[in-house]
Amino acid sequence: MHKLKPELLEGAPDAELVTRAIARDEAAVRALIQRYNRRLYRVARSVVSDDGEAEDVLQEAYLKAFAALGSFRAESSLATWLTRIVLNEAFQRLRRRIDVPFSEVDRDGGQTLMADVIPFPASSRTAIDPERAMAQSEICRLVEKAIDALPCEFRAVLVARVVEGMSVEETAAAFDLLPETVKTRLHRARKMLKDALAEHLGPHFSDAFPFDGKRCERITDAVASRLGF
């Protein structure tokens, strides 16, 4: 298969990139990683609540995804398929951290044991990462702090729906929830945030947890290297 430069594949359909990636086209692999890096990073971070650990989750999830890419049958979108792999990796790490399976979160949006025991550590990288410091305003830092303080099941749905802009149906498929449960959890998450944030901060949600520039390139290079390119 003729290999193209990564920039020439930027607008290529997922199906074409998948076919090329299965054939070990490095440009296609990099294009797929860069296309979904921000969404998958935000989803991972919504579970593990730590910048560095979210990047680790992302790398491991990408390796598993590319190893299984030949089994992708497009029964769901590639974005949903990748999101589920990232969530599985993130929840595995969370279970190892707190020894409480995610399945114990009830499906009606109620509070559970998980919400009480999840630690919410401040990332040690936040204060020393100059790129992040330059990218984030004080408002976005307040938004991130407020989101981090939410119980996991509400935080994850909020990030998927509000921060990343996933639809109710896509979020439900990714988290294996009923659409009604997604709506309930989002409603409760927003209500919790009202105590910490004024309503006029809403438009700034889309800028929370940036993942581009050097950070995006670092993950892309690391995964490509581990895949043997």
Rank of each mutant, 00 (worst) to 15 (best):
S225M: 03
P119A: 04
L197W: 15
L17E: 12
A173S: 13
H2Q: 13
V18R: 03
F120I: 03
G165R: 13
P6M: 04
A90I: 00
A174E: 05
A31K: 09
D25H: 13
S206D: 04
A65Y: 01
G213T: 10
L8N: 12
E180S: 11
E53G: 01
A222N: 15
K5C: 12
L8H: 14
A115G: 10
E217K: 15
E60W: 05
L150R: 03
S46M: 04
M166Q: 14
A156K: 13
I147L: 03
Y41W: 00
G202T: 01
G109A: 04
L150K: 00
I85M: 06
L63E: 03
R38G: 11
L87Y: 02
E180F: 05
D106R: 11
A27T: 11
V163A: 05
P179H: 01
H204N: 14
A115L: 11
V18W: 03
Y36F: 06
E138H: 12
I118C: 06
L17I: 06
A68D: 09
L142P: 02
L9M: 02
L17H: 10
L177F: 09
V43Y: 09
R73G: 11
E104V: 14
D129H: 05
V57K: 02
V223Q: 05
R226Q: 15
T83H: 13
C216H: 12
R161H: 00
L158I: 07
S77E: 05
F91D: 09
R97L: 14
D50F: 02
T171G: 01
L193N: 05
R73M: 05
L17M: 15
R84E: 00
M192R: 12
P121H: 07
L32S: 07
L113H: 01
V100N: 01
A90V: 04
R35D: 09
F209L: 15
F102G: 02
L142G: 12
P101R: 10
N37W: 10
L186C: 08
A67I: 07
R35W: 14
R188D: 06
D116R: 13
L4S: 04
A44M: 07
F154V: 01
F229Q: 08
L8Q: 06
P101M: 07
S71N: 11
C216S: 05
R97T: 15
A135G: 15
E153Y: 11
S124I: 13
R39G: 13
K5R: 07
S124L: 05
R226L: 00
A189C: 00
C152F: 02
R24L: 03
E199M: 10
Y62F: 12
V162H: 04
I22H: 10
E138D: 14
R125C: 14
L197F: 05
F205P: 00
G110D: 04
R38N: 02
L150S: 03
P101C: 15
I33S: 02
R96H: 15
M114Q: 12
L94W: 09
S103M: 12
K194Q: 13
G52Q: 10
R38Q: 09
R42W: 01
I147G: 08
S206Q: 01
E138T: 14
K5L: 07
P119S: 01
D176P: 08
W81T: 11
V86C: 02
L197P: 01
R84A: 00
F205T: 10
R95T: 15
L82Q: 01
R226H: 06
P13C: 08
D106W: 08
L63M: 08
K183P: 11
I139H: 06
D56H: 13
A160Q: 06
D176A: 12
I22W: 05
R95L: 13
R35N: 08
